[in-house]
Design a protein around this nucleic acid. Structure first.
Lengths: 181, 181
DNA sequence: ACCTGAACACCGTTCAAGT
DNA sequence: ACCTGAACACCGTTCAAGT
């Protein structure tokens, strides 16, 4: 059996959607691809490196470069929600490969219009931390519902979107005030 | 050899400080305590449950109930920074035992003075997400420096505090505007 | 160039049996 | 009541050897 790096990354992305981050193992992935575990290490340096590629794949779902911070935050949330544990994977990768989190650069660029470079960086990080934290909680809740540890709440999705927007508007409002000062 | 639940929790907290979350295993902890791994499971249901107790232990370092959101956020950050990977542990636990994250209740209580219950909850979550996300990044960076993957930057600590305050002030400023509306 | 087979050094958890 | 011994079902990673 032969595999390419692209197949491994795509397989990992699929497996993430089907089994979640806790169910994503190199051995399981090898079995999905009809190959021995060791074969993966010819194409990929480590599980960490593979997760970095999966994070890039998740963020690739964002359609176009954003024109304002509010829609950048919204597009990021949407991309993260497309795959199970998406926020956790991106958070993990952000720790050691921050350059992969492209929306952070875009936010910095957008904020550079009203801030100095230092403040633009801080503002972008504030927004990214909020979005990653918010969506991680959303998805962790979903995992617990799936595991039947928590009951399902039908109105949750709509509430979540309103709560998300409440926070984003507060943050962006506060940043605007700060930049005007 | 005999162990109590309190000793296990304290041992886990110590081990976290010394080896980080990645180095904290039930087997290693058992060895530290001079006991077989299975013995731990007489006192503790699972590693998850133990981590929940460790998270409570981390948050116990917060001295007194806060009087305003800004100092609540600051006290939370300080407690998280006291132990390696503190933010990651609390984030993890928040997912399945949110009631353990006491600062979140306090923030909700403080925001209830200017918001309805729904908005107070959202406001509290916004602040908690930001603090956890910010400190997690700080500590992950520290882990990478420790592993000599990233170089040490001497001015980092002071910069971090300023960046943290920049974000907190923006969020709280934005929330104030929202509540006045 | 790419993969297999097999091993190394780990995990969390369970549970009969011992004291 | 509390612990040991031993097992079960896993991990990520490495690497000689094969094709």
């Amino acid at each position: 059996m032969k595999v390419t790096r692209a197949q491994i990354v795509e397989g990992a992305y699929q497996a993430l959607g089907e089994r979640g981050l806790g169910g994503l193992s190199m051995r399981g992935l090898a079995q999905d691809l009809g190959v021995q575990p060791g074969a993966l290490y010819y194409h990929v340096a480590s599980k960490q490196e593979l997760l970095a590629a999966v994070a890039a794949r998740i963020l690739d779902e964002i359609p176009a470069p954003a024109t304002d911070p509010r829609s950048a935050a919204d597009a990021l949330r949407t991309a993260l929600l497309r795959v199970r544990d998406g926020a956790e994977v991106v958070s993990f990768v952000q720790a050691f490969r921050p350059e992969i989190v492209v929306p952070a650069h875009e936010l910095r660029r957008l904020f550079a219009e009203s801030f100095g470079p230092r403040e633009a960086e801080w503002a972008a990080r504030t927004v990214v931390h909020y979005v990653l934290g918010f969506v991680a909680e959303e998805q962790n809740h979903a995992e617990l519902v799936r595991a039947q540890i928590l009951p399902e709440e039908p109105s949750r999705a709509e509430d979540s979107s309103r709560a998300f927007m409440f926070g984003i508007d507060a943050i962006l409002g506060g940043l605007e005030v700060g930049s005007a000062r």
